[in-house]
Amino acid sequence: MKAAAFEYQKPTELSAVVSALRASNGEAKLFGGGQSLGPMLNLRLARPKKILDVSTLPALKVIEDLGTAWRIGGGVTHAMLEDRVLVGCEPLAQVARGIAYRAIRNRGTVGGSLAHADPAADWPLTMPALGATIVIAGVSGERRVAAESFMTAAFGTALAEDEIIAAVEVPKISADARWGYWKFCRKTGEFPEASAAVLLDPQRKVARVWIGALNGAPQSLNALAVDIAQRGFLAISDLSVSQALEPVLGKIDAAQRRLHQTAVRRAVQLATA
């Protein structure tokens, strides 16, 4: 349970991070809060040659009000979002509160979680459901990717080897918007076995239903969301939910299918109640 030897570097500027990443030819690993990478290092499942520690990089710690959106630095911890309710982005505090345990939330970061891209993690599900945009910094500057297309597979993202998540921009929801988030964990704080997020924002004409804890990236149930916008909880039945989930789940065993159905149903219930 001791990490294999690695070199350690703590750049003090974002530009230094991306140039160090480029220079390392894929041999370096970014260390955000280290709450997933740390265990992997200790178990020796990950053996990067070099660790680039960005856990205290000031540029990544900024939370900024952009008017219609909040820009959240990639190095902002879950605990920072738990403790500070951002007006218009209230779901973030609610989701943050449910991530693992406080000791993990104190160090784990939004950018780290998104870049790690665990299919069952909370931010990879929440960000597309809120219609967020991932701001990626690279050697040639910033580029922006919609959260819904950022995660491509289990542990796979749109990030190139020499890129880092600079920030996430989360659009503000209307005052009367509804949010529902539900996940099933066998033990509090564990990665869930099923999870779902629902956003209903009548003023902005936005309805989204996303499910997570799949084998790959979280998926959108767009048709179901449009139906819920029109009919509310009446759109939810065993049949409608299982039909919406069918193309996403494929062939899985009945117990798992039931968990995913329940996650969708309960998240919708929370949003429409």
Partner: peptide
């Protein structure tokens, strides 16, 4: 919650690249 017609295919429109 009022009933509403959600805009279909709501890509978050923000992606510039």
């Amino acid at each position: 919650l009022p009933s509403f017609q959600a805009v279909a295919n709501q890509a978050s429109a923000a992606a510039s690249v």
